[in-house]
Each structure stands twice: as C-alpha cells, then as structure tokens.
C-alpha cells in the first residue's frame, strides 16, 4: 500500500509539470512516424495498382474507388460475421473465466499463487506452429474443422492467460481498504466482485477485453489452418488479394483499411477507458 501511494504522489506531481516544447515536437514527430504506415495504407487503397507501385511514392494522386469496388465484389459480410462472432464470443468467455481467476490470485492468493500465474503464461510459450498438427488431428476427430466453435475455443484459450495477467494487476491496484471495509460489513465474494471490484476496475476490464478482441480479430495462423474452409475470418479475406501473378498492393491496402475499421471504431468508442486502462495507475 505504501508503495502504491508513493507512486501515486510521484505521478500526480509529474503530470502537473508542463512538458517543454521540445518534448511536444518530439512527441509529434514520433506520432507521425508511427502513424505514417497506416496513413500510407489508407492512401494506397485509393490509388490504382500502377500508382501504388510507382517510385517515388506519390502523395498527391487522383483517388479511385476501383479497389474498394473490386474488394467488395466478393461478399465481405460472411468473413466479417465470422470474425465478429469469434472475437466477441471468445472475449466474453475469456472475461467470464479470467475475472474469477484474477480475483482469486489477486485478492485471495494461495501459497503457490506465483506458480499458478507462471503456469498460465507458460501455456503461451509453445509457438502455434509447434501444435498445429496435433491440433489439426484433434479438430478433425472432434469435427471442429471449419467451425466457428473451434475458433472460439482456440481464441478463448489463447487470450485467457493474458487476460488473467492483466486483470490481476488491475485488481491489485484496487485499494485494499475498500475491500476490507466491505468484508467487515459482511460482503460475500460475489458481491465483492460484482459491486466493488469490477466497477472500480472498469478501465482495466475494457482494456483487457479490447486486447482480447484485437488478438482474436487479427489472428491468422489458426484461422487459416483450421477454419479457412467453412468459417473464414477477416484476416483470410485480406490475404486473398495477395497473388503471385500481378499487382495487388492497392487492393490489399483497401481490404486492410476495411479490416481495421471495426477495431478503430471500437477503440474510439472505448478510447477514454482504454487510455486510462492501458496507462499506469488505472484505478486511481
């Protein structure tokens, strides 16, 4: 407790300092450099295939919607629907499973809680390529190949360790005094979680859910190996424009722009919570 209150003082005093113009210029420069690839992707989506590969890259050009027309020529909605279902359902499952787990580790730790935490993250040590063949066989036998259920199970398993880790650190920051006070008043674990812990950790919950959605939305390897036939997701829609014969950059940029839009929109909606959740001291 002492450490966290000291950290809080330090943070508050730092935020009160006005940043120097030099820092502002640098922040802008870094921001623009970081943003440029995205800007270039959006711009390229409005170029013709030939303009897209011209050197030096043209920043001023006559925009065309031809790429979007070609991209939308293929029905985007099934891909979109599959991604949406996989990302949202798996995230909901992740949250339902991760909240009690994180609560247990953060607020009612057992003796070996560090080992438990390490075990969770260790499930992500093995590279996906290392498990794909056994997974494929298991999925084939379980008739999960090309099904949305198969993807949801995988994405839940994939995001659960990260969610537990994140939520644990968010729950740790909830002042113990409040929880202790509630316990003195006779609150059980259920009310403790639902009425005290979760409302105080909303930014953390949003950040965790958002990361889980993003990971599931962008996941390519499992989707292409296990679900490409039947329940293809948005990343699979994206790469279909990559051809070994002919130009594809503009079409790829157009479809990529479309693929990131939902995430950008969700990010915008949750922006305030996210910035708080992803920066330090989310609870304060």
């Amino acid at each position: 407790m002492a450490t966290s209150s000291r950290r809080r003082t330090r943070l508050t005093s730092r935020t009160k300092d006005r940043a120097s113009p030099a820092w502002a210029v640098m922040a802008w420069a870094v921001a623009l450099i970081a943003f440029f690839p995205v800007l270039n992707m959006v711009l390229t989506g409005f170029k013709t295939e030939v303009t897209a590969v011209s050197l030096p890259p043209q920043l001023i050009f006559w925009p065309t919607l031809e790429n979007y027309r070609e991209v939308l020529n293929i029905n985007f909605l099934p891909f979109f629907r599959n991604s949406l279902i996989a990302a949202l359902t798996s995230t909901a499952l992740v949250m339902v499973l991760a909240i009690p787990a994180a609560y247990g580790i953060a607020l009612r730790p057992t003796k070996q809680w560090k080992d438990v935490l390490f075990f969770f993250i260790s499930t992500r040590f093995l590279p996906p390529a290392g498990v794909i063949v056994p997974l494929f066989i298991i999925y084939r036998e379980a008739q999960l190949l090309g099904t949305i259920h198969g993807l949801i199970i995988l994405y839940t398993a994939m995001n659960l360790p990260i969610a537990i880790w994140m939520l644990r650190s968010f729950f740790e920051e909830v002042p113990r005094e409040i929880i202790d006070a509630a316990r003195v008043d006779g609150t059980g674990p259920w009310r403790e979680i639902t009425q005290i812990l979760l409302p105080m950790a909303v930014p953390g919950l949003v950040a965790t859910a958002f990361i889980s959605i993003i990971f599931a939305w962008n996941e390519f390897f499992f989707a292409v190996s296990l679900a490409a036939i039947g329940t293809a997701t948005v990343p699979i829609f994206l790469v279909r424009f990559v051809t070994s014969e002919g130009f594809f950059w503009a079409k790829l940029a157009a479809s990529s722009t479309m693929a990131v839009l939902p995430i950008v929109i969700v990010g915008w909606i949750a922006q305030r919570q996210l910035v708080r959740g992803l920066s330090m001291g989310a609870i304060k």
Partner: peptide
Amino acid sequence: GKRNRVRSVALGTFSLNRGASALSSGW
C-alpha cells in the same frame, strides 16, 4: 513477410488508439 506486414499494420492502428489524441489527429 507481406502477410506479417499486414498484420503489423492492424496492430499499428491499435497502438495508435493506445497512444494519445495527438496520434490520431493525423486522420
């Protein structure tokens, strides 16, 4: 490589949200 680039672009957009409003003002 190209595929990875696509994915990193998507993630790049994410970090854009994470950053500050200064980042997003390009758009």
